[in-house]
Write a protein that binds this DNA or RNA. Structure first.
Length: 224
DNA sequence: TCATTAAATTGTT
DNA sequence: AACAATTTAATGA
């Protein structure tokens, strides 16, 4: 995705706004670039913006004191996130890091609240997104406890292509096996092994730093 | 354009 | 966790 303009064009909540509303949003959005590995925002910071991914891939994650890292979700181009902390007026509950060079749009909390007060499509969008997230996280817990590593990797990968949470994902993702491991709760070595199984099953194609999904439905139900 | 090198990622133990 | 192999990206001739 190339620009904030395109991000708005692809965001369902923005498509139904009145021209003057879109104009205000355009004026108040702030765009910033982050190189791969950069922190977009930190756990504990004040949540005063809603965050949209114009282009790239970011992850929501946590690191404990001994350096162990887990990833809650990967968020790609066209997606908006971070509304939970903004709505509650709380600090961020996790770190956000760019996994690739990324362009990020920030919507100030004042703009966010104004949309909340004036736009029905915006509220509808938030409700749907929050519901999708709930389903996503419940699925994560279920998969983590019930599925073997091959299937966990399959689901973790599939989650990057959730049509609601990552609407513009296409069919491929530039992500290292190590990062996929953080998302699936598996070691890099185990991810490598799992990806061969999935490739053997003709569900994905694995290239250097790139995974192409050949059968998303098969990936979602793998190991069930 | 090609060769060289460093860095990132992958494959294996 | 460690090590080797491979791929990419950057650099300069």
């Amino acid at each position: 995705m190339q620009s904030v303009e395109e991000l708005l064009a692809r965001s369902v909540w923005a498509r139904e706004l009145k021209p003057e509303q879109t104009e205000r949003i355009r004026a108040e959005l702030v765009e910033r670039e982050f190189p791969a590995g950069a922190t977009v925002c930190r756990k504990g910071e004040r949540a005063d913006v809603w965050i949209g991914v114009v282009d790239g891939l970011v992850k929501l994650h946590c690191i404990n004191a001994s350096g162990k890292s887990i990833t809650f979700a990967g968020i790609s181009s066209g997606s908006w996130f971070g509304e939970g902390s903004v709505l509650k007026g709380e600090s961020r509950k996790y770190d956000i890091m760019a996994l690739r060079d990324s362009r990020i749009a920030f919507m100030p909390v004042a703009t966010f609240r104004w949309l909340l007060d004036t736009s029905l499509p915006f509220n509808r969008f938030l409700l749907t997104q929050l519901n999708e997230r709930l389903g996503y996280f419940m699925g994560m817990i279920e998969h983590e406890r019930l599925l073997d590593p091959d299937a966990r990797v399959a689901r973790a990968l599939a989650s990057l292509f959730n049509p609601y949470l990552n609407p513009a994902a296409g069919d491929r993702v530039r992500i290292s096996q190590e990062e996929l491991g953080y998302l699936a709760g598996a070691s890099r070595q185990r991810v490598n092994q799992a990806l061969r199984v999935l490739e053997q099953a003709a569900l994905v194609r694995v290239d250097y730093g790139l995974i192409t999904v050949l059968d998303i439905a098969g990936l979602r139900k793998f190991g069930a």
